[in-house]
Design a protein around this nucleic acid. Structure first.
Lengths: 152, 152
DNA sequence: ATATCAATTGCAACCAGTTGCAGTTAGAGT
DNA sequence: ACTCTAACTGCAACTGGTTGCAATTGATAT
């Protein structure tokens, strides 16, 4: 996978001019995320980075993830599991409907969010990050049998 | 304020039939939330409950908040501050646009979310909880001066 | 190439929130 | 009113994540 070349160029570009520096730690973190096909928790990212560089500190990973999110290379989503999930920002987007009762997650089509994004941009000038979104609520099953049953 | 009477009735109603019990701890937690005009963090709820009942354990508060959310009397929102904000579920709804860069929060009109909720319900049978929503992204200011500057 | 210095890292202490478990209790049945 | 038991609470240990600070380092200027 020579995606890393592209990612590296994008990384340097995104950091430059905003007063941020290119550090090996940040490259490693982005590398791990870029090489993964799915969401990763911070913990998983830390574990993978440490396979190559066992001495890397966890604070550096958390701080790198924050920064990569801030500069728009990575998305974060809280799927309600208590841990944030990080993922390389790719197209097309996908989203999640998370049930508050049974915790079941349904994948939602991106098309439903497009008009919302457009309206927010038009009305408030705010550019929403609707790349990877979680909407909480009650799933079909839990609505019908709204009595009884517990979590998970 | 004799809102407590209504809340109590609703609480009993919501717990009944789902195998949950009415406990003094849950009443206290709901009472505190109902008496507040704004969002409260779990920590703030704990502090207020302890003014009356200094011995109440924090786990009970966290667990009560989860339950009150699950049964729909209370909403949770993560405004990006690292702490969840709890609030009595009232109409009309209001929402927040949170800037990933400067952390500024704009209030968003409920009308923009209504069509989305309708579409999700129609397509997936999922009843989204769009009562108190946070959308992350980049605010108007941070888009224009997208280089330079750090957090507030 | 070297000096400079703010951005960044590593560390250790810390904080919000969770969990497993033993003891307690709401409330249904009698 | 009394019994029974699953739901619940309190506790203490734990987990994921954050923070303050001293030491380090990437990038800019010389």
């Amino acid at each position: 996978m020579n995606r890393s070349t592209n990612d590296h160029r994008e990384l340097v570009q995104s950091l430059r001019g905003s007063g941020h520096r290119l550090t090996p730690q940040r490259e490693m973190v982005l590398g791990v995320i870029a090489d993964s096909e799915t969401h990763l928790t911070a913990e998983q990212v830390l574990a993978r980075v440490r396979k190559q560089h066992p001495h890397l500190n966890k604070s550096a990973v958390y701080r790198s993830l924050d920064l990569l999110t801030e500069i728009g290379l990575v998305t974060v989503t809280d799927l309600g599991g208590g841990k944030s999930e990080y993922e390389l920002l790719r197209q097309p987007s996908h989203h999640h409907l998370v049930c508050n009762k049974c915790k079941h997650v349904t994948v939602m089509d991106n098309a439903l969010l497009v008009p919302l994004g457009r309206k927010i941009k038009a009305k408030y000038g705010f550019q929403p990050s609707l790349h990877h979104f979680a909407i909480f609520g009650t799933c079909h099953k839990c609505q019908t049998r709204s009595a009884g049953h517990k979590k998970r």
